[in-house]
C-alpha cells in the first residue's frame, strides 16, 4: 500500500496551479486535504505522475461574504467551518454539517472543494450544498464557469469538471431569517460515510422549499416542493423515487433513506 512514484508541486498562485493541471503531456491531479486521495494513492487506485498541492494558494483558503452569498475557497477545511468564527448566512447549517464529518483528524485537513471534486455520493457536502442551492465555481487556464451544486456530481466519483479544471469556489446563497432546515444521516458507527442522507430546507421568504435524498447510487435526488415540510411523504414515495435505480429493489435502502428524510423533515418542522 504505497503510491506509485509521482512528482509533487506546491504552487503559490492559482494561475500556476491551473497551468500545471492543464498540462496535456502528463497525468496531473490536484491535492487538497488528501483525506480521500491519500488512501486512493496508497491503494494505487489512482496513479498520477504529478500531484499539484493547492493548499498554498491564499484565495483558495479564503471565506468571504459577497452580495447575498457566502463564498468559500475550495480549500476551506471542514474544521474551519465546524469551529465557526466566520460569517455564516446559512443559519448554522455549515457548522452543524461540518462537525459531523468523519473524525476531527479528517476534518482538520479535509476540504469542502476536495469533497465535492471527489464526488462520493455519500459525502455530506454533496447533498447539503445541493440543498442549499449553492454554485460551484470551476476554473481552468483562461476561463471560469459556474455549475449548480446539484448538477456538479454526475455519478459516483464523476463530476462536471473538464480536463484541466479545478474547483476554486463554492458560492452559497444566504438564507432568510425565517428559513428552517433539517439534516439527518444514517451511519452504523461514528465517523462513517453516510448510508442514507436527508436534507430539508424551507425558506418561505425566498419561496424556496427543497428536499434532498443523498447517499444514493449517483447524484443526490433533489426535490423542489413547497409542501415537502408539511408532512412525511411516506416510504412509498421514496420507493417510487428509487424505481429504476440500483437501489430500487432494496427494501432496506428505501427504508433508511425514508427515515433520513423523515428525520430531516421533523427537524425542519421543530419549533
Amino acid at each position: 500500500m504505497k503510491p506509485v512514484d509521482f512528482d509533487y508541486e506546491r504552487p503559490a498562485t492559482l494561475d500556476a496551479a491551473l497551468k500545471l493541471l492543464g498540462r496535456e503531456d502528463l497525468n496531473a491531479k490536484p491535492l487538497a486535504g488528501s483525506q480521500s486521495l491519500g488512501p486512493m494513492l496508497n491503494l494505487r487506485l489512482v496513479q498520477p505522475e504529478l500531484l499539484v498541492d493547492i493548499t498554498a494558494i491564499p484565495e483558495l483558503a479564503s471565506i468571504r461574504e459577497e452580495k447575498g452569498f457566502l463564498v468559500l475557497g475550495a480549500c476551506v477545511t471542514h474544521a474551519a467551518l465546524e469551529d465557526g468564527g466566520t460569517p455564516d448566512p446559512t443559519r448554522g447549517v455549515l457548522a452543524r454539517v461540518a462537525a459531523g464529518i468523519a473524525y476531527r483528524a479528517v476534518r482538520n485537513r479535509g476540504t469542502v472543494g476536495g469533497s465535492l471534486a471527489h464526488a462520493d455520493p455519500a459525502a455530506d457536502w454533496v447533498s447539503v450544498l445541493a440543498a442549499l442551492g449553492a454554485d460551484v465555481v470551476v476554473a481552468r487556464t483562461g476561463g471560469r464557469r459556474t455549475v449548480p451544486a446539484k448538477d456538479f456530481i454526475r455519478g459516483t466519483f464523476e463530476t462536471a469538471l473538464g480536463p484541466g479544471e479545478l474547483v476554486v469556489e463554492i458560492r452559497i446563497p444566504a438564507l432568510s431569517a425565517n428559513a428552517r432546515w433539517g439534516y439527518a444521516k444514517i451511519c452504523r458507527k461514528a465517523g462513517e460515510f453516510s448510508h442514507a442522507t436527508g436534507v430539508v430546507l424551507i425558506d418561505p421568504a425566498r419561496k424556496f422549499a427543497r428536499a434532498v435524498i443523498g447517499a444514493v447510487s449517483g447524484p443526490p435526488i433533489v426535490v423542489d416542493d413547497a409542501k415537502i415540510a408539511e408532512r412525511d411523504p411516506g416510504e412509498a414515495w421514496v420507493s417510487a423515487l428509487f424505481a429504476g435505480t440500483p437501489l430500487g429493489d432494496d427494501a432496506y435502502q428505501i427504508r433508511i433513506h425514508h427515515v433520513a428524510l423523515k428525520r430531516a423533515i421533523a427537524e425542519a418542522r421543530a419549533p
Binding site: 488512501p39 491503494l43 452504523r188 458507527k189 461514528a190 465517523g191 462513517e192 460515510f193
Partner: peptide, 13 residues
C-alpha cells in the same frame, strides 16, 4: 478489504 467496509467499533461505539 479496507476499514470502510470492515467495520470495527471505535471509542464512541
Amino acid at each position: 478489504s479496507t476499514f470502510a467496509d470492515y467495520l470495527v467499533p471505535g471509542f464512541p461505539e
